[in-house]
């Protein structure tokens, strides 16, 4: 068996004394898509943001347990800046920065000190192609990113994350604001990306989890109820609550 890319051990998170996640154990193998499903406030977004320490800025947060990336502790052995270059994230709403398409994509590389214009141009082309956006924007790279449609903006955000050359990409309900056609395009991009990256996808849409996830984890009230191959979770869940949720009895 391959060693896991990410390994979460007994992870608990609380904000202001209110527990948000409790005792989560989970291994994520490299080059798969792990879908994380669960109703609102089940802790799945907290879980995701813990993986690249994006919650660090929250002042009243307490974390116990550990998260290992390639067997190194994310909270003790990584500088958060280095960590976030390895673990990228796509947010629920498209969040292009108010600058050009080109500038958006090279935001990350620029911060690492890369100045060479040819190199940056090559990065832009490669990443936009990987995110299936190149053909739609190649003639207007220097127009404002805010003018793109919602679906295009979200794929731009994917391209922008790819430009940092991460190893893991976290998706936080990336299609919640998109129409079905844009959603299909984002899903297509994700499926192709897993060849090179490990992907964690938080989604409210159980059908999406079933479509793209190799594995699926079900969270409820801050607890990881069960995790397994997507096929078996959806056809033969071991826990009654999982069955209730995916068959639409609540959530």
């Amino acid at each position: 068996m391959v060693s896991p890319k990410l390994s979460v051990k007994n992870l608990s998170v609380s904000f202001d004394g209110k527990p948000s996640l409790g005792g989560v154990h989970l291994d994520i193998a490299p080059h798969i898509i792990l879908s994380v499903i669960g109703p609102a406030n089940s802790g799945k977004t907290t879980f995701l943001r813990t993986l690249n320490r994006l919650n660090d800025e929250e002042s009243a947060m307490k974390i116990t347990g550990s998260v290992l990336l390639d067997n190194k502790d994310v909270y003790r052995e990584y500088d958060p800046v280095i960590l976030r270059r390895k673990v990228g994230i796509i947010f629920a709403l498209p969040t292009p920065l108010p600058m050009t398409i080109f500038e958006n994509v090279i935001y990350g590389p620029r911060r690492q000190g890369i100045q060479d214009r040819n190199k940056l141009s090559a990065t832009v082309e490669r990443c936009l192609k990987e995110a299936y956006l190149w053909d739609e924007v190649k003639d207007r790279l220097h127009s404002p990113a805010m003018k793109l449609s919602g679906g295009q903006q979200q794929r731009l955000c994917i391209a922008r994350t790819l430009a940092v050359e991460p190893e893991v990409i976290l998706f936080d309900e990336p299609c919640s604001g998109l129409d079905p056609i844009s959603t299909a395009k984002v899903e297509e991009a994700m499926s192709k990306l897993k060849k090179h990256y490990t992907i964690v996808l938080v989604t409210n849409n159980t059908k999406q989890a079933a479509r793209v996830g190799d594995q699926t984890a079900f969270f409820l009230m801050g607890e990881l109820v069960e995790v397994g191959d997507t096929g078996s979770i959806f056809t033969a869940p071991r826990d009654r609550r999982t069955d209730d949720y995916i068959s639409g009895r609540f959530g």
Binding site: N52, L54, E57, P80, V81, I82, R84, R85, G88, I89, F91, L93, T95, L97, P98, Y107, G108, R110, R111, Q112, C157, R160, T161, V164
Partner: peptide, 25 residues
């Protein structure tokens, strides 16, 4: 707040985030 989060998530340091994603706006 999302501008700051985007910048940090792309591997920018806090100071870079302030300089490039916050101050200009």
């Amino acid at each position: 707040k999302s501008f700051r989060e985007v910048s940090l998530s792309l591997g920018a340091t806090k100071l870079q985030t302030i300089k490039h994603a916050v101050l200009p706006h």
